[in-house]
């Protein structure tokens, strides 16, 4: 006998539970939002450190000590010309007294400096970062000249920048890890609650011969998609926030000399990555929770 009105599609074995899912969705989305922001912070610190370090290691500053009896501007031009010929040097530009005064203006004010104040001249040297001049080469080159120079290769600043950027980076990564753990714990708790609420489903499946992985798979799929949706929402919001922050910080950085978060393509991968990670963490946490519960109830 054939019955024409047989149901064509089987109903879901685990019915939707909106009352429980909504708060969990909100909590997971917030955790993903915070984790994504932390991820953006780590990526920004990483890229900024790379940029700063590259800048510092490709530039030198030579300071020429002005002496009353000499024409410091002429000495600076002479030194720059000699330095420019050194292997590994891409360019050497002598800065005039006016340039030096302009650099000092934020600290000393707009009033003109006394003419007899010995203002050191600066020579900006760009070097090949892959083959820079040997350490001490500039000092040796200018040793026999009648003026005194001090070479600043920015090494101490580079180390400080590296340390600071590293600290920011690892702090942000630690924050990401803590938030991921928090998300996993919340979702594991929710999965246990969900299993407790729908124990009838697990029991019925178990008693008709469903292996643990079948029962677990139902809960795992449910939480995977819940984690994915929450992840997309949280990471999407974080991407918008990160974009706004980068632009706001760019404007602030120009005024206050703040480092500007540099969000490149690697940072753009954080949002979808966070959504996927959220789904995988949710599925994994649900799997562990349900498997443990099944083994505890049916040893």
């Amino acid at each position: 006998m054939s019955t024409p009105d047989k149901p064509r599609r089987p109903a879901a074995l685990l019915p939707p539970d909106h009352a429980r899912d909504r708060p969990l969705f909100a909590v997971a989305a917030i955790l993903v939002f915070l984790a994504s922001l932390a991820g953006f912070g780590a990526a920004g610190a990483w890229q900024a450190a790379e940029g700063w370090t590259a800048q510092l290691s490709s530039e030198l500053t030579v300071q020429l000590i002005a002496e009353d009896a000499r024409d410091a501007d002429a000495d600076a031009l002479d030194a720059a010309a000699q330095i420019a010929r050194l292997p590994g040097v891409l360019s050497a530009t002598a800065r005039s007294r006016a340039d030096a005064e302009a650099l000092l203006r934020p600290w000393l004010g707009g009033a003109g400096l006394p003419d007899d104040l010995p203002v050191p001249r600066l020579i900006a040297v760009r070097v090949d970062p892959d083959a820079p001049p040997a350490p001490g080469a500039i000092e040796a080159l200018l040793r026999d000249n009648p003026y005194e120079v001090v070479v600043d290769d920015h090494a101490r600043w580079e180390a400080a920048v590296q340390r600071t950027a590293g600290a920011v980076r690892y702090f942000a990564l630690g924050l990401v890890a803590i938030l991921a753990l928090a998300a996993a714990a919340v979702i594991a708790f929710a999965a246990r609650a969900s299993l407790a609420a729908r124990w009838d489903v697990a029991e019925a499946l178990h008693l008709v011969g469903a292996p643990d992985r079948y029962v677990t798979g139902i809960f795992q799929r449910r939480f995977f998609f819940l984690g994915l949706k929450a992840g997309l929402a949280g990471a999407g919001l974080a991407a918008l926030a990160g974009y706004g922050l980068a632009h706001g910080a760019g404007a602030a950085g120009a005024v206050f000399f703040l480092p500007v978060p540099a969000l490149g393509w690697s940072a753009a991968a954080i949002a979808p990555g966070a959504a996927l990670a959220s789904a995988l963490i949710a599925a994994g946490a649900a799997r562990l929770a349900v498997t443990g519960e099944l083994k505890a109830r049916w040893p």
């Binding site: 047989k6 149901p7 089987p10 109903a11 879901a12 074995l13 019915p15 009838d200 489903v201 029991e203 019925a204 178990h206 008693l207 008709v208 011969g209 469903a210 292996p211 643990d212 079948y214 083994k295 049916w298 040893p299």
Partner: peptide, 29 residues
Amino acid sequence: PRDALPGLRRRIGVVFQDFRLLEHLSVFD
């Protein structure tokens, strides 16, 4: 072993006194 139980249970049909039907599924399902 625990993983042999599903195979065992598939060889057994049980009618429970309290039926244990799943409320969200149709009779057919």
